[in-house]
Amino acid sequence: MEMQIFDFATIANATNNFSSNNKLGQGGFGTVYKGMLKEGKEIAVKRLSRDSGQGFDEFKNEVTLIVKLQHRNLVKLFGCCIKGDERMLIYEYLPNKSLDNFIFGS
């Protein structure tokens, strides 16, 4: 499975510098932003919290596992972005609500 490594400037540009207008949600592991790449592809960017305590090795293992778990019923991981202690996961954007809404209802 292929996975792209995105540079920070590309992701910052795609999310309008992580604008609050592009914020889709927030959880214990970070904030998710909607973005648009230059070629028109919509993405969801999970910007991991610096307070998560996750080191580089743990992040690398998580990305490797997610790539191996690609399935037609799972959101596709396009790649990741690492800059210093910044770690981000770049997913395909799915416009129809969040998974918890489908599981638990509104």
Rank of each mutant, 00 (worst) to 15 (best):
H71A: 07
E2L: 14
V32G: 02
I11R: 00
G53H: 08
A44H: 03
R50T: 12
K97E: 06
E39P: 02
T10Q: 14
F8E: 06
K97P: 00
G84Y: 00
M1N: 13
G84T: 02
F18S: 05
G79F: 08
K46Q: 05
N22T: 13
N17R: 14
A9N: 14
G105K: 02
K68D: 08
R47H: 05
I103Y: 08
T64A: 11
N73D: 11
V63T: 10
A14F: 01
F56L: 13
Q70M: 08
G84R: 01
Y91C: 04
I11K: 00
A9M: 14
H71M: 07
D57T: 10
G84W: 01
S106R: 09
I90W: 09
G53M: 10
F56M: 14
V63S: 04
Q26H: 11
E2V: 15
K38R: 10
D7P: 05
N21W: 11
M3C: 14
L77Y: 02
L77C: 12
S19G: 09
K34M: 06
M36A: 08
K46V: 03
G55Q: 07
D100H: 06
R72A: 11
F18L: 07
L48G: 01
A9Q: 15
K46A: 05
I82V: 10
E92T: 00
K68L: 10
S98I: 04
D85G: 11
S106M: 10
E2H: 15
F78Q: 03
F6C: 09
F59C: 07
K83W: 12
F104W: 10
M88I: 13
E39C: 09
D100Y: 10
G105L: 01
G28C: 07
R72P: 14
E92C: 00
V63L: 09
S20W: 12
I43H: 03
G79V: 11
L94F: 09
I90R: 06
Q4R: 15
P95W: 03
F56N: 14
D7K: 02
K38M: 12
N96A: 06
S49E: 03
G30E: 01
N16F: 02
M3K: 13
K38A: 14
L37T: 12
K68H: 12
L74Q: 03
R47D: 05
C80W: 09
G79E: 08
D57H: 08
H71L: 05
Q26D: 11
T31K: 02
N21E: 15
N73S: 11
L99M: 08
S19L: 13
K97D: 04
L99C: 03
R50P: 04
M88L: 15
E39K: 07
N96H: 10
L24R: 00
G79R: 03
L74C: 09
L99A: 06
N96M: 03
N22S: 15
E58V: 00
G25M: 03
N96W: 05
V32T: 01
G79I: 09
V75H: 04
K23C: 12
E62D: 13
